[in-house]
Design a binder for these strands. Sequence first.
DNA 1: GATGAATGAGCGTTCATTCAT
DNA 2: AATGAATGAACGCTCATTCAT
Lengths: 217, 217, 217, 217
Amino acid sequence: MLKKLSEAKLQEILETGISEFAAHGPDKANINVIAKKSGVSVGVLYKYYDGKEGFFKACLKQALRALEAAIEEAIQGDDKILVRAEKLIRAIQRSAKENPNYNVLYHEITAGSSQRHAATLAAEIEGISSRAYVGFIAKAQEDGDIRKDINPRLFAFFFDNMLTMLQFSYSCEYYRERFKIYCGEEMLADDERVVQELLKFFESAFTTEQSQIPHKR
Amino acid sequence: MLKKLSEAKLQEILETGISEFAAHGPDKANINVIAKKSGVSVGVLYKYYDGKEGFFKACLKQALRALEAAIEEAIQGDDKILVRAEKLIRAIQRSAKENPNYNVLYHEITAGSSQRHAATLAAEIEGISSRAYVGFIAKAQEDGDIRKDINPRLFAFFFDNMLTMLQFSYSCEYYRERFKIYCGEEMLADDERVVQELLKFFESAFTTEQSQIPHKR
Amino acid sequence: MLKKLSEAKLQEILETGISEFAAHGPDKANINVIAKKSGVSVGVLYKYYDGKEGFFKACLKQALRALEAAIEEAIQGDDKILVRAEKLIRAIQRSAKENPNYNVLYHEITAGSSQRHAATLAAEIEGISSRAYVGFIAKAQEDGDIRKDINPRLFAFFFDNMLTMLQFSYSCEYYRERFKIYCGEEMLADDERVVQELLKFFESAFTTEQSQIPHKR
Amino acid sequence: MLKKLSEAKLQEILETGISEFAAHGPDKANINVIAKKSGVSVGVLYKYYDGKEGFFKACLKQALRALEAAIEEAIQGDDKILVRAEKLIRAIQRSAKENPNYNVLYHEITAGSSQRHAATLAAEIEGISSRAYVGFIAKAQEDGDIRKDINPRLFAFFFDNMLTMLQFSYSCEYYRERFKIYCGEEMLADDERVVQELLKFFESAFTTEQSQIPHKR
DNA sequence: GATGAATGAGCGTTCATTCAT
DNA sequence: AATGAATGAACGCTCATTCAT
């Protein structure tokens, strides 16, 4: 076979890569195996990508693009914060179902072997959503939709922490198991329930002014 | 040197292992290097542990034991839920400062290369805390300390998600960067502030009955 | 581009090949790079030449043809031996300046990787000049121009050895350095001096009958 | 087999390396093959030497040490120049017979792939002998043993050129063939004859003042 | 005929593991 | 028991060669 690689083939290679990198991690994943599974020669990987690391980055980029696209809609428009939250949760559930590996890859870069690039990667990946989330929350404070006695950046951070863990809990093997341990196997499938409970969690956390709550300590 | 390995030496080896595994990940960490840095021969690693994987597990166990010990106190007694939460947060901050690598190792097992053992590991590691957290929350519901219109297992899950992300945010390079992006560099050092804001988040989320909150959707 | 390769293009390819083979050696030189630098596809290299080895041989042949042409004039006619020698030395200097790579390529085939073809190559390359040189010297002996107490083949051999080393000393990196170490950097540029001294060397060696020299051993 | 490599084994490995590098050149020689032929694992080569290049350098050093040792004796003492020359020629013949590969390796570094290190190598390798030869000749000039109307550095250079070519002519496949073409197959075996003729060549070249020779141009 | 993308055998190198000492 | 040199399978990468277009 020596006709030029179609765009589709390139996509297929990336998908294979994502799948292998997700399954074995960036270090253990085998370039020769990925090539074989993609039905191309290793040479192709070295022609289109800059070695194993370059290929991993390409897979990562692909995965992150898809993840961004998945939540894109949810952060557009000027919904009230909880509406946005609901959209986000549902987007996460949907995307985790469709492409769990994208989340696995995202998770991968937070681990040891990618440490060297932590700062760069974090800036690239978290920059946009962090600004978006902090913006939402600050705006919501101004609009009187959520309480004013909180630090919007920290609350945005907490908010994203929850969503991030949700992503992993639906996609990464370990976190799925943990999810089941906490909530029972059936909860993994009961998307609606998770949405409702998490919204309750957010709603209260976001909207209840401290003064309204009698201190119990 | 033919003298038997002292308990202290074994500890030192584990610490070296933890440090190397944390720095390079389970795959890239080098057994021969670990032995050299520990001042022992590779032979002992193979005598005392079952290969690289067995040694990693031992390091992991060591790290987890320490992490458990660190939060042990916080989950003892019968404090009110928010007092417990505060204790937990502070324990996490303390432990992350003292031994960030323990958290890194914990994080490591959630990633790809450990996937094979996800179920076993999760059961071993999350079993205790999940039961504890679910127990607290159910108990607090009974006592009227927190709201009744929630699923205690899910809320325990959310609760631990927050704490888990906090752990990583203080310890793992990528998450530290992300923390800084969301909250600014200075927040990483401002433990008190984080405690207070996270407690606000939990307090409202836990104590505010849905009915008290006017719906805004 | 489907136009047939012009003779000029073929020449250009050979020159590129010579340059690359001279720069990196026959093993490390890269066929694909040569094609790219020549502005043709690898395909033509395989169409016009028999693989990498065949192409190297073609480059070599080209280089040797040029080297032969450069000394052609010097071995024509029936000059006295020292006149011929001078012409040869100057031809070598000229040719080394103009196309050092030709000499480098010549040198290349005397090395390991070409060993398999040593006999064939030597016969092809050295045959003509050896016959010429031996002829000159034998003739000069007959004419009484040079001494009779020597073996003309060995002296032709010595003669060519000197010229060969001179070629390399002007063209091949290592031998240039060695030249500088022996004679100083400035001698590399002082062609005239080299001509004169080498002629002295030859003149005495060729013309002085042993009997004229008082033995000093 | 896992007892520590004996000095003898290390020597054997170097000899195998020299032989393989001589046979195939530094680029084509195969580290895994060398290891296998030496009866050791590749790992050993990487433990004792710095990769393929480091190993080649070690082989080279070994070869050069042996070559130096072989001519050491000849350049000791304060023999008259022609006595020295004779000793050198015989040393070259002996060494070429015993270890032709050492010469092949020496020849190898003058070729393309070693170009990068030409300056360093030349300084290391040629430095000593060049100083020795130039010294001899200058001294012999002072002593009135050889003529004064020559540049001692250039004549030392010519002298070493002849010896160098002799080395290669006895050791390197291509030059051996060339030797046979010039002088006939039997001359390769007739060491005595070569010694005598080359000495004649040197003797006249060195001792005959220009003035004694009637110009014939 | 000319192209150049694709191929995949082959090689340098690493490192988990073994076992004679 | 402890050692650590030796092992060699395995992997990332290169590049000479092929052949559909």
